[in-house]
Design a protein around this nucleic acid. Structure first.
Lengths: 167, 167
DNA sequence: TTAAACTTTCAAATATTTCTGAAACTTTAT
DNA sequence: ATAAAGTTTCAGAAATATTTGAAAGTTTAA
């Protein structure tokens, strides 16, 4: 397999994977491209490589920067902005986990907390509802905490977590 | 907040959360409905409650059963099928983790393995590509293993994992 | 074997998401 | 102050994904 071919395969499948995870195809593709690019790339270069419009490139680059997994750089003497991906994979994982928690899990927890705290009263229907949503709240909350802990300690997470628990 | 209101809020937000995670809205809503329903429900009842068509209900129920998080039941003397959700949350999490690994992570790993093993040759561009995709492979692989371990031991995962590692 | 009860399938309709491209905007150099 | 170089915005177009509904298929009971 040739480089160009391998590159395409990687970018395409990363894009497809992204869509399955609720990240749009282009955003995932730009990310993939930057992950395998030794140098930072200008918007022009990204547009060219992925055959996408300027608007699309601009919006998705901004999105990636909001996630904190792509950064801007200015090259001395040049006016263009250059973009590069976060290449430290631990750091990448931490950023993604944090953002997903903030954007998706936390709001879901709020809803669960709200709906699980209606007055259960006498009705057995209500009782069941508050019970189930309450359990769900506890569970999601626990999972979110674990995720937070795991990211907090990165590679050394296990040892440190054990220490913290035992103390 | 009244029960009906709370129920709607829960179902709607679970549906919205689903879309963000690449699970379609209706599928997530059916799942939400079954999670808070003390009894199993017929397809009619689900269609009615969520105002969706028969076809939609049928396809998404099948989807949920493929994930292993909703099950069919036959009530004695009745011809209809009744559906109920997996209510053990640990079990639910395990099922979801396993399926996502199988459907999404494993295929991604295959691509990463393939593309990272092109002959790097002399070109520094190729070298960089194989290096980066190789690292990505190791990382995703490690994460997938951790997920597997975590689900293998359910709530007691930490203690058992520690034991296993120390042995 | 028939028909009623129920479920599945799938082509077409609908809804949602993403993408384009051109205009508006911003920044920098002169 | 001007214009060149670059970036952002956003309304409409295009692409995707979801949903409907009716026909086809299946199962059960008599």
């Amino acid at each position: 397999m040739e480089l160009e071919q391998a590159k395409r395969r990687f970018i395409d499948s990363w894009g497809a994977l992204g869509s399955q995870w609720g990240i749009n195809r282009t955003m995932a593709q730009i990310h993939a491209l930057l992950m395998i690019s030794p140098d930072s790339l200008s918007m022009e270069e990204i547009m060219e490589d992925l055959s996408i419009s300027r608007g699309n490139a601009s919006m998705n680059l901004r999105g990636l920067m909001d996630w904190g997994i792509v950064h801007k750089e200015f090259k001395p003497g040049e006016r263009k902005e250059y973009f590069y991906g976060e290449k430290d994979l631990d750091e990448l994982a931490v950023k993604i986990a944090r953002e997903r928690s903030k954007r998706e899990i936390k709001p879901a927890l709020k809803v669960l907390k709200d709906v699980s705290s209606i007055d259960p009263g006498a009705s057995s229907e209500k009782k069941y509802f508050t019970e189930q949503t309450g359990k769900l709240y506890d569970f999601v909350s626990k999972a979110d905490n674990m995720l937070e802990k795991a990211t907090e300690y990165k590679d050394n997470w296990l040892a440190q977590l054990v220490l913290k628990i035992m103390r």
